[in-house]
Simulated assay, not measured.
Amino acid sequence: MTVARSLLLFALAAIAEIGGAWLVWQGVRENRGAAWIGAGVIALGLYGFAATFQPDAHFGRILAAYGGVFVAGSLLWGMAMDGYRPDRYDIAGAAICLAGVAVIMYAPRS
């Protein structure tokens, strides 16, 4: 159950951070206005809380692992929201990052 909870928290953090950054991008770069920017700032703030609920107590480990989730999540977000189509190198890189997440977070430790 701990791994499932951790994965869910990583997914929520990715949605909040990537979604928040995308909303700010839309507000500024696509001229959608202050409401989009404000929603993005709120989402980015929620991201800041998501990591605190991870079962591991080490900030550096959580954020290092989340970096891999962010890489893969950003590609997925781009596909869903902007029509981006990753190439095989994007996919390979994301897979490597996710393998790193698994090692950092879920390798057995004594």
Rank of each mutant, 00 (worst) to 15 (best):
A50Q: 00
F49W: 14
G78F: 07
P86K: 08
Y84A: 12
V103I: 15
V71R: 05
G68E: 01
E30G: 03
Y47G: 02
P55C: 10
V69W: 00
H58F: 07
R32A: 03
L23D: 00
W77C: 09
I104K: 02
G20V: 10
A43W: 15
G78T: 02
F10Y: 15
L23R: 01
D87G: 14
G38H: 12
V101N: 03
L8M: 13
A95Y: 05
A99C: 13
F59S: 13
S74V: 06
R61L: 13
D82H: 14
A57V: 08
S6W: 04
A107D: 06
R32V: 03
L75E: 09
T52N: 08
F49V: 09
Y47E: 02
A35R: 15
A35K: 15
W77I: 04
V3W: 08
M79V: 14
A95R: 04
G68Y: 00
N31W: 09
W25S: 07
A95W: 10
Y84V: 11
A13E: 06
A50S: 13
A99Y: 07
I15Y: 08
I104M: 13
A4F: 12
Y106K: 05
L7V: 02
A51Y: 05
F53M: 11
N31L: 05
I15A: 14
A14L: 11
A72K: 07
W77E: 03
L98V: 06
V69R: 01
P55R: 03
A51F: 09
L98E: 04
V24T: 02
Q26I: 03
A43S: 14
G48L: 12
A99L: 12
L44M: 14
Y106W: 15
G60Y: 07
V71D: 11
E30T: 07
R29H: 11
G78A: 05
A72C: 12
F70N: 00
Y66F: 15
I62D: 02
V71C: 09
D87Y: 04
A72I: 08
M1D: 15
A16Y: 09
F53K: 07
V103Q: 11
C97F: 14
R109V: 12
G68P: 01
A14N: 04
Y84D: 04
Y47T: 02
G73I: 00
F53V: 03
G27H: 08
W22T: 09
A16V: 01
V3L: 09
A16D: 01
I91G: 01
L23T: 01
G73P: 00
L63Y: 15
A51R: 01
Y89R: 13
G38F: 12
M79C: 11
G73R: 01
A72H: 08
R61F: 05
F53H: 10
A92W: 05
